[in-house]
Design a protein around this nucleic acid. Structure first.
Lengths: 127, 127
DNA sequence: ATAATTAATGCAACAATGTTGCGATATATA
DNA sequence: TATATATCGCAACATTGTTGCATTAATTAT
């Protein structure tokens, strides 16, 4: 059976993500970690953390991939990431708006499994 | 004054995008065009077409960039791309759902300028 | 505490995607 | 038909992400 181990790289990366109030890209994490480990290791740690459902992956409006920690209780029955992300076009920060729930009606011949709702504009700091 | 010219590459690429009922990536366009021009030219033509507001750029759920033609009347006063895109996880087709309008309420301290709403799941063909 | 197991890492090499500079070409205009 | 310049092709480069494999280190068993 395949277990998961808590390594220094994993702990450090998770701390960086948890302490950030915006979603971070692989490159940003690498810079913030002060090259504590190899570039490849960061990719693998991020994959592991996403798999463990500790962080989640966000696709930014410009196509860049960002990561943010999950704020939900882990024992939640229905666990989705269907909340809104906001991408500031000035400071490029990506924030999760957990409270805002988008509503929409789809044609019945589609089966919707996941939602990615990203808004862009100016965040409170840049307004 | 900087004018725009209609070249064979531009015409061909636009035709490909217009005749497709799903959004296409750079690579898909390159394949469909049968290598009529250089890889770089496709990037530049796509940028131009987006700038001319003839096609629009979509960021897929997996981060890949797709392009689709704009179906709206060009003399529309308020012209936004704030409609929903659907990304099928089986056939990977990305379609524009022009009719479906998402609704949501944002905290007032944000200035929303653009909306990117992408759903994923199974499209009617794969359901 | 020590040894054994194997998850995780570092490194190198590779692949895919996108960008830039510049001389050559082709399109629109005079 | 000649001219100006937008566009193209090519080469070279940058960024981002992936894979294989030998080495290291975290966990478990002794």
């Amino acid at each position: 059976m395949k277990t998961t181990r808590n390594t220094t790289a994993k702990t450090t990366i998770l701390e960086i993500i948890k302490h950030s109030d915006v979603a971070l890209s692989h490159t940003e994490i690498q810079t913030l970690s002060n090259n504590i480990c190899d570039r490849v290791t960061i990719y693998r740690v991020l994959d592991r953390l996403v798999g463990e459902d500790v962080i989640h992956k966000i696709v930014n409006l410009d196509g860049t991939i960002k990561y943010a920690s999950c704020h939900h209780a882990h024992n939640e029955v229905e666990h989705t990431h269907n909340h809104i992300h906001f991408s500031c076009e000035k400071c490029h920060a990506v924030t999760c708006l957990d409270t805002v729930e988008p509503t929409f009606k789809m044609p019945s011949n589609y089966l919707v499994k996941a939602v990615n709702f990203t808004l862009s504009g100016l965040c409170p700091s840049c307004l």
